[in-house]
Design a protein around this nucleic acid. Structure first.
Lengths: 118, 118
DNA sequence: TGAATATATGAATAATTTTTCATATAATAA
DNA sequence: TTATTATATGAAAAATTATTCATATATTCA
């Protein structure tokens, strides 16, 4: 079977459904952007960081102590979250304080939490 | 540095913030369940499957043709979505029709899409 | 200026996830 | 019953992601 071709080994294929799905499909870039966003939430360390930051800014050191992981690991995770504009930081002397950057974060967390509890 | 210990190499640590974050932290099982859910959305193949199923049920073969990937790959992805109760299926003879199982899916997709477009 | 420290980062390793390939299962048709 | 076919699945291979370790950077303080 060659997935590159627009056919399928099966006989039972629903042309109209596939056409309809193609018509309303999102552009690849949009799918990729969504996947990137969900990936940011798809890791327990990052989820705990995001959840913790809901109640106020914290420095890298605080987050490392909270999660009980190395500061380097937290810093790498924060970089990913920063790259996706989910968090931003503010420097006060030598310390960087991180905060949530976006109301959508809270929405996604809440929907996921409710989903899990049902 | 030993991440297992409740301390941090840094001097500047905000005890109250960490305590507050600990107090409102989610249980590990809840974090894990949320991470699992987000993982399901954190892959472009699965996102495209979920997006396609919004407009009606499709069989494995349809989805493979739509995504242009092997039926085996789609089937593995569907198993994951099934395990998380995000999709369910209905058998009609030899064909299995898959459908979305949950209104939260639509909500998560929409929030993520809007987020990406802003 | 030099030492100390909070954080960042590249590269390597470890861990996890996705896809493929081969084969199995379940339903239908002959 | 046997052949066919749509889908499922285990195990291996390929790809991706997280963490660690070593080191770099930026800021403060002496």
């Amino acid at each position: 079977m060659n997935p590159k071709e627009d056919f399928c080994a099966c006989r039972i294929i629903h042309e109209e459904r596939i056409k309809k799905a193609r018509d309303m499909a999102l552009a690849a870039t949009e799918i990729d952007r969504m996947a990137e966003l969900f990936k940011a939430f798809a890791d327990s360390s990052r989820l705990r960081i995001l959840w913790a930051l809901r109640q106020g800014e914290m420095c890298v050191c605080d987050l490392a102590a909270l999660l009980r992981v190395s500061e380097s690991a937290v810093s790498h995770q924060l970089r990913l979250l920063r790259t996706l504009h989910l968090v931003s930081n503010r420097r006060d002397g030598v310390v960087l304080y991180y905060r949530l950057n976006d109301e959508h974060i809270e929405q996604l967390l809440q929907v996921a939490l409710i989903h899990g509890r049902e």
